[in-house]
């Protein structure tokens, strides 16, 4: 199919501008994620690509083919929905074979391709089960097999893991990634979960208010947020203005806004021994245990910071109310405005 290109795509509902001149390009065989909060337009964009929503303006190209006004039936796209959208009256086998039967393929081919897909998603033995007899994870695997059986040019995943519990979600996302790599299929994944986006994606498009606010690899998005929104959405970045650094020594910037990752900040009982580090005396306001991470909230008269430390010792090294020193390398400070 080649590259998927979207040029100046817009979509409105009445006065509400849901997508505002979206431009993006997706390379063949890559796994990209549309990441953003609810209502940012990511699902609408996905449905425009699928042909389920008519666009107001703009163009969608699959390679050299303009598909902007093609019906969904003619786009050869596979899609997995958040709520599975399995046909309740059909069993696992019939659900997966549905698209092949609609295309009136020979019975032998239908049988062979359906069997292959059932193996791919590891649902052998469940062929006769109705959707109501399956768990959430199994349902989503059937939906994935049903979407892939037609050998689509592109796979669209609309928050497919949101309705699942944490353990199944983790297993299934790895399974999705393995299948995507094995089939080398261009995949667009929609999610509001930054962790999922970072784990799965070759490239992430961060969306806000109907626009793509930043795109790039997971590493770029995480380490170099382009603005307040990305910094706030992608991690627990500390967003700071110059005046918040009043209490810090060796802070040399004059004006601007900065993003500082919680894990690059260190805490110690004594001032940093490394003279080059930006340092400030602060007080521990709160301690939150996040599994392997211990999150400290520290403050001084000018600001409040989130600091993430690896939870190595059973008893936290610092107590609430204790006076500590926080310090970080100056280059870890990312200017975002």
């Amino acid at each position: 199919m080649g590259t998927v290109t979207i040029n100046a795509l817009s979509k409105s509902y009445g006065d509400l501008n849901v997508l505002n001149k979206i431009n993006l390009s997706i390379e063949q065989g890559t796994f990209v994620t549309l990441l953003g909060p609810s209502g940012c337009g990511k699902s609408t964009l996905l449905r425009c690509i699928a042909g389920l929503i008519e666009v107001d303006e703009g163009q969608i190209m699959f390679g050299n083919e303009d598909v902007t006004h093609l019906t969904p039936q003619k786009r050869n796209i596979g899609m997995v929905f958040q709520n599975y959208a399995l046909f309740p009256n059909l069993n696992v086998w019939e659900n997966i074979a549905f698209g092949l039967k609609v295309q009136k393929l020979p019975a032998d081919e239908v049988k062979e391709r359906t069997r292959e897909m059932i193996q791919l998603v590891a649902l052998e033995g469940k062929e006769k089960a109705l959707p109501s007899q399956l768990s959430g994870g199994q349902k989503q695997r059937v939906a994935l097999a049903r979407a892939l059986v037609l050998k689509p040019k592109m796979l669209l995943l609309d928050e497919p893991l949101s309705a699942l519990d944490a353990k199944i979600r983790k297993n299934l996302r790895l399974q999705i990634r393995e299948i995507q790599r094995a089939l080398n299929i261009t995949t667009v994944f929609v999610t509001h979960d930054q962790e999922e986006a970072l784990i799965l994606s070759d490239e992430i498009f961060v969306m806000d208010k109907g626009e793509i606010t930043q795109f790039g690899s997971a590493k770029t998005i995480y380490t170099q947020p382009a603005n307040d929104f990305v910094a706030g959405f992608i991690g627990h970045y500390n967003i700071l203005n110059t005046e918040h650094f009043e209490g810090f020594s060796k802070f040399s910037h004059k004006e601007g806004r900065f993003a500082l990752r919680p894990e690059v900040i260190k805490i110690s009982h004594a001032p940093s021994e490394l003279a080059a580090r930006v340092t400030a005396p602060m007080q521990v306001k709160d301690i939150i245990l996040l599994g392997s991470i211990l999150r400290y909230i520290v403050k001084d008269a000018y600001t409040e910071l989130v600091v993430d430390c690896l939870y190595e010792e059973e008893i936290p090294a610092f107590k609430i109310g204790e006076q500590v020193f926080v310090h970080f390398e100056p280059e870890k400070l990312k200017r975002i405005g």
């Binding site: 699928a50 389920l52 019906t71 969904p72 899609m79 929905f81 959208a85 609609v102």
Partner: peptide, 12 residues
């Protein structure tokens, strides 16, 4: 949603 899913599988 069922109609959308069926459409994408080629059904009229």
């Amino acid at each position: 949603t069922l109609i959308d899913a069926a459409k994408l599988l080629g059904a009229s």
